[in-house]
Design a protein around this nucleic acid. Structure first.
Ligand SMILES: [Mn+2]
Ligand SMILES: [Mn+2]
Ligand SMILES: [Mn+2]
Ligand SMILES: [Mn+2]
Lengths: 227, 227
DNA sequence: GTTATTTTTTAGTCTTGGCTAAAAATAAAA
DNA sequence: TTTTATTTTTAGCCAAGACTAAAAAATAAC
């Protein structure tokens, strides 16, 4: 296909998605990311991943050694962070301005994150009041690609009788988010751990006036800041 | 490339751009659109156009007879109109909400028009107050792809001593729009034709308190409604 | 320290959407 | 009505980015 956009730095949709996936994987495990891990996270085949990381290596966007996995260069990291910045800013737009619900915005942001225009993002950011977090509590990288990480814990990591305020979700699938809605949990909600079962990690928690049971699966996907 | 979006009706970026180009060409000349005309309007080669219109014909989006040109089917027309609807709604967003100038929005809208989400456009339209026209005075098709055409004339067509209000531009290149800015002409501006030269079609017009000369090239790219 | 399993890479194909060069059809001139 | 010019199509090629199947390397098990 013909290159429709004429910008200085231009990466294809595929390239951007690979860099983004590697970025996320680097931050949730070792910094050498395996071919298989990338393939799984992108729902594609390892052979396709090998192809692409070799191309990205040519362009100095990742460092790659055969059989050793990939790792973003500074340049690659910046590009990835910028795509994530765009994704999260658009999510804020969709929720704050268009009144989408937080479980509906991800797919649309997956598309919007590839729109190429510095100026657009500068203005969108200002329009939104330069938000620091997206609707799922994820931090928005600044224009230099710097992502400040806050000290947050998984709900599953906090102890009995401790209190926390929900600051984000690890998973943001519609199913999970809708579960949280049902339980009246959203960003900013105060949660108290009333009981914790060692065997399966399940908990009894208090949210507002309600007390109820949650599984470990839930607790390990909710970020809180302890109070 | 892999199909990232999973919608019912999905057309590629290239397909959408071809349908849009054919739509525009149908409305500015005969309804059989020539291969060369499409090629020129898309800055591509006639052989590429032939390829694509054959594919579009397979999918019943255009009717095509060898050496006879292409013509959108009802389905193709609807799809094209919807892309144009999206383009123009996004242009309104960029100008009204992000304070872009009217000469800066076209390229960005060329990208945004391909974002796939019915719901997004429904909400964007509502957010913008369901505008009828884009920043260049072009009508925005409704959600059924119906485009109501207003009775507007080119400034070049109106007579000496007639008055008109500017309702749109035919060209919307940055150069032309910046010329209009310099002359303080925008949508809604009242223009009086004080003189008209038959030889070259140039005019003397009045805009506010200023009187000045404009060439035929300018006059045939400005739409007005006579008062 | 071999053997077996898993992971990763290579080789070869496919589709989309471009391109050029040549052939065929149509339109214009003579 | 021929000849010439223009338009359109076909044929063949290329790059991106996917895939499958097979080979090679790295790990894990024995
Ligand atoms: Mn998201
Ligand atoms: Mn998010
Ligand atoms: Mn436009
Ligand atoms: Mn416009």
């Amino acid at each position: 296909m013909k290159n429709v956009f004429t910008f200085v730095h231009m990466f294809t949709l595929a390239e951007e998605n690979y860099m983004k996936a590697i970025f996320h994987l680097e931050h949730e495990s070792a910094d050498e990311v395996s071919t298989n891990a990338i393939a799984e996270s992108m729902a594609t085949k390892p052979s396709s991943v090998t192809d692409m990381i070799q191309k990205l290596a040519e362009k100095k966007l990742v460092v790659y050694k055969r059989y050793k996995g990939a790792k973003l260069t500074e340049k690659g990291k910046k590009i990835a962070a910028n795509v994530i910045r765009k994704h999260r800013l658009w999510e804020v737009f969709l929720v704050e301005k268009l009144n989408f619900h937080w479980d509906e915005v991800h797919e649309i942001a997956e598309q919007l994150e590839h729109i190429q225009s510095e100026e657009l993002i500068t203005r969108l950011d200002k329009f939104l009041g330069s938000p620091d977090f997206d609707p799922h509590g994820d931090p928005i990288p600044d224009k230099h690609g710097v992502l400040k990480r806050t000290e947050k814990k998984l709900l599953s990591e906090i102890e009995k009788n401790q209190k926390g305020v929900c600051v984000g979700v690890k998973e943001s699938s519609p199913d999970f988010l809708q579960y949280l809605d049902k339980k009246k949990i959203s960003i900013g909600t105060k949660i108290t751990v009333l009981g914790k079962e060692f065997f399966d990690g399940s908990m009894i928690i208090q949210v507002g006036n309600e007390q109820f049971f949650i599984s470990h699966k839930i607790a390990e996907n909710l970020y809180v800041q302890t109070l």
